[in-house]
Design a protein around this nucleic acid. Structure first.
Length: 303
RNA sequence: GGUGCCAUAGCUCAGUUGGUAGAGCAACGGACUGAAAAUCCGUGUGUCCCUGGUUCAAUUCCAGGUGGCACCA
C-alpha cells in the first residue's frame, strides 16, 4: 500500500501554515516545510516562521535547520526531503508538506537532474568577469561550449548563462548534456491542495501580516542581519528593502510599502507557476472541513 | 467674501502652438532544472472635473459652475 504525501501550497500569506497544522493533526503525522527562506535559522520574523505554539503541536522539518551562510539549493532539498520522508513513512501512512517555494515543490515531486555542486571559486570568478567584461563575454563562451543550450536559453537572463557556464567549465561537458529533464518517479502518492482567494483579499492579508512583522521587530531582526546583506539567502523580500533603509536610500515607511508590494509580486509569481500545474486541487481559506473530507476520500481511493 | 493657482491612469505628475494622451510607481500577464522570496521578459488599464461657447475639430482656447490649495480680508 503506497504512502501518501499531502502537499499544501499557495501564494504567500494565504494560510498554509494553519491548514497544514490541522491536516497533520488529523492524520497524526508531521510537517515538512517547503520554504526556501524559513529553512534559515537566522531569519524568523520576516520569513513568517510558525510560532512556538504551532511548532510545539506538530513536529516540523526544514524549519530553521540551515544557516544563511550555507550554500543551499533545490537539489539538496530534494535529497534531504526524500531521506526524511523515507524515515517518516516507516511509521506513518501520510506526511504533510507545506510551503510556497515552487521549484522546491517540483524538485520533490518530479526530481531534478543530477548536476555537480557549483564551485564557489568558479562562480565568483565568472561574476567578476561579468563586472569587468560584461555578460556578452559569457554569452560568447557559452555559445562555444554549449551551442545547444545557447540556442534555448533566455540570453537576457544572466543567472541562466552563468550557471550553464559554471557547469560547462566544471565538468568539461556541455550543460545541456545534463539536462535530461527526466521526471523521476516516487514510491509514494502525492495529493496537492492549493489555497487561493480573491486578489484583493490576498493582498490585504499580506499587508496585515507585514504590519504584524514590524510590530514583532522585523526592523531589528534585519538590522542584525545587515552585515550579511550580500549573501544570497538575504536577497529576500522583507530584508532587502530594509537594507535600503539602513543605507538611507529610503525612509522606513517607504521600505515597509516596498515590502508589501514586493510580497504582492511574489504571490503573483507563485500563482503563475502553480497555474501551470493541473494536478493541484484548489480551495479557499476557511474550507478546512471540505479539504479534510476531500483528503479522506483521496486517501481511501488510493488504498 | 476677494484674488491667484490647480483639476489628465489606482497614486504622483508630464503633455498636447486645437487633430481624443504618456512617464515613474502600483496593477496585470508570462518564462523559469542548483541563487528560485532569485533572475528575466511583456502589457496602458483613461468621460483628460462638469456645463455651455468659439471651431470642420476642444482634454487643450473662452465663460460659468464644482472641488482643492495658497494668499488677502
Amino acid at each position: 500500500m503506497p504512502k501518501t504525501l499531502i502537499i499544501i501550497l499557495g501564494p504567500t500569506g494565504i494560510g498554509k501554515t494553519s491548514l497544514a497544522l490541522q491536516v497533520a493533526k488529523h492524520y497524526s503525522t508531521e510537517i515538512i516545510s517547503c520554504d526556501s527562506r524559513q529553512i534559515y535559522r537566522e531569519m524568523r520574523i520576516g520569513t513568517a516562521v510558525p510560532d512556538q505554539e504551532t511548532l510545539s503541536q506538530v513536529k516540523h522539518h526544514f524549519i530553521q535547520t540551515h544557516s544563511i551562510h550555507d550554500y543551499y539549493n533545490a537539489s539538496k532539498y530534494e535529497l534531504e526531503v526524500l531521506q526524511t520522508l523515507a524515515s517518516l513513512f516507516e511509521t506513518h501512512e501520510v506526511a504533510v508538506m507545506a510551503g510556497g517555494s515552487m521549484m522546491y515543490i517540483d524538485a520533490v515531486c518530479k526530481g531534478i537532474d543530477d548536476l555537480p555542486d557549483v564551485d564557489p571559486e568558479i562562480r565568483s570568478s565568472l561574476i567578476a568577469r561579468i563586472n569587468t567584461e560584461g555578460i556578452e563575454s559569457l554569452r560568447m563562451e557559452l555559445r562555444y561550449l554549449d551551442p545547444v543550450y545557447y540556442s534555448e536559453v533566455d540570453l537576457r537572463n544572466p543567472k541562466r548563462i552563468l550557471h550553464a557556464l559554471e557547469i560547462c567549465i566544471m565538468t568539461g561537458k556541455p550543460y545541456s548534456s545534463f539536462r535530461t529533464r527526466r521526471i523521476k518517479t516516487r514510491d509514494f502518492d502525492i495529493v496537492k491542495v492549493g489555497l487561493n482567494t480573491e486578489r484583493s483579499i490576498l493582498y490585504s492579508r499580506i499587508d496585515q501580516r507585514v504590519e504584524e512583522m514590524f510590530r514583532e521587530g522585523l526592523a531589528e531582526e534585519a538590522k542584525e542581519l545587515y552585515p550579511f546583506r550580500n549573501l544570497n539567502s538575504l536577497n529576500t523580500v522583507g530584508y532587502k528593502e530594509l537594507f535600503d533603509f539602513f543605507e538611507e536610500k529610503t525612509s522606513l515607511e517607504e521600505a515597509k510599502e516596498k515590502i508589501k508590494t514586493n510580497s504582492h509580486k511574489y504571490a503573483r509569481k507563485q500563482l503563475t507557476w502553480f497555474s501551470g500545474d493541473s494536478s493541484i486541487n484548489w480551495f479557499s481559506p476557511g474550507m478546512e472541513r471540505e479539504i479534510l473530507k476531500f483528503l479522506d476520500e483521496q486517501l481511501c481511493v488510493q488504498d
